[in-house]
Write a protein that binds this DNA or RNA. Structure first.
Lengths: 137, 137
DNA sequence: CAATCTGTAACGTTTATCAATACAGTATAG
DNA sequence: CTATACTGTATTGATAAACGTTACAGATTG
C-alpha cells in the first residue's frame, strides 16, 4: 500500500484534533515523521477534493472542511492510491495464449478486488480513526 | 501488488494447460516475459506448499500436483504476498498522540482488509483462471 | 516591505525490484 | 561413468520507484 494513503489519514486525523485553528505542514510533518513538502503534496490532493481548506501566508495552514464522519478511508484511498492494488505484470509473450491474455484477466479480477476492498474501507471514517486513536491512550 | 503473485498465477495456469508433461522454467519464463531464475524462485515457494512438484535433470521441470480447483488466488496470495497490503508507515513522532498510535490503528485495520480481500480471492481457483483465459480466445 | 506560509518543480539519494551470472546438486541418456 | 539438461540458490549489478531536499514563486499578514 502506497504511503501517501497513510500520510493522508495521519494528516486528517491531526486536523480533526485541531478543528479551530490552522495547522502548518511543518507541524503535521513533525508528527508524521516526513518532510513538510511531502505533506503539502498529499494535502493539495485532499484540498482539490474539498476535504480540507488551506490558507497561505502568516497564520495560514490547513484545516478540515467537512464533518469528520463525512470522510472515510475509501474516499482517501481513491484519491491517493487508486490502482495501487493492480499488479504490474511484465510484458508477456503475445504468441502464448496465457501470456497474451493473463494481464486482462487479472486486471478484471483486481478491479473487482478494489471494489471489494472499498466496501470494507467505507466503514472507517476519520471519526472512527480519531476514536481508535483516543482509545489507545 | 507484488508481481510474484501474478508470476505464480501465470505459472500455475501454464502448468494447468500441460497436465501430462513437465514444463521447464525456461518455457514458463518465455511465456511470462521474465528471467527463468525468477520463475524458479517463485515456483520453489509453490512447491514448498505442495501445489506443484518439480524434478531436476534431463526431462525435468515443474508439474501441477493438485486438482486445478484445489488452488485459489487467496492461497497464492498468502504464499507470495502476505502483508503486502499493509502500508509501511514512516517512524512517526512518539510524543504526539497521533504519531504514537496511528501505526497500530492502521495495522489492525489493514489486517481486516487483508482478510476481507481473502474472501474475494477465494472465489477464483486456477480452474476459473484457465476458463477465463480460454474465453478470451 | 519583512516575515510566514502554501504550491510546485527540479534534483539527488536511498531503497526496492529485477536481471544476470555463477555454480552446486540431481536426474537421464547413451 | 560421463556428457547433457535440468532445478535450487546465492550473489552481484543495473534499473526504476520512492522519498528527502533545495529552490523559488505566489499569497497573506502585520
Amino acid at each position: 500500500m502506497n504511503s501517501d494513503f497513510t500520510l493522508a489519514i495521519h494528516s486528517l486525523t491531526l486536523l480533526a484534533l485541531q478543528p479551530d485553528r490552522m495547522s502548518t505542514s511543518e507541524y503535521i510533518a513533525e508528527s508524521a515523521g516526513v518532510h513538510p513538502v511531502r505533506i503539502r503534496k498529499v494535502l493539495s490532493l485532499l484540498k482539490k477534493h474539498g476535504f480540507i481548506k488551506s490558507k497561505e501566508g502568516t497564520g495560514g495552514g490547513f484545516i478540515f472542511a467537512l464533518d469528520l464522519s463525512e470522510v472515510n478511508l475509501w474516499d482517501i484511498y481513491k484519491i491517493t492510491s487508486e490502482g495501487t492494488l493492480q499488479p504490474k505484470c511484465p510484458e508477456s509473450n503475445e504468441r502464448c495464449i496465457v501470456g497474451a491474455n493473463m494481464q486482462s484477466v487479472l486486471f478484471t479480477i483486481f478491479l473487482g478486488a478494489e471494489d471489494h476492498l472499498g466496501e470494507y474501507l467505507k466503514d472507517y471514517t476519520i471519526r472512527e480513526i480519531v476514536d481508535l486513536i483516543n482509545q489507545k491512550e
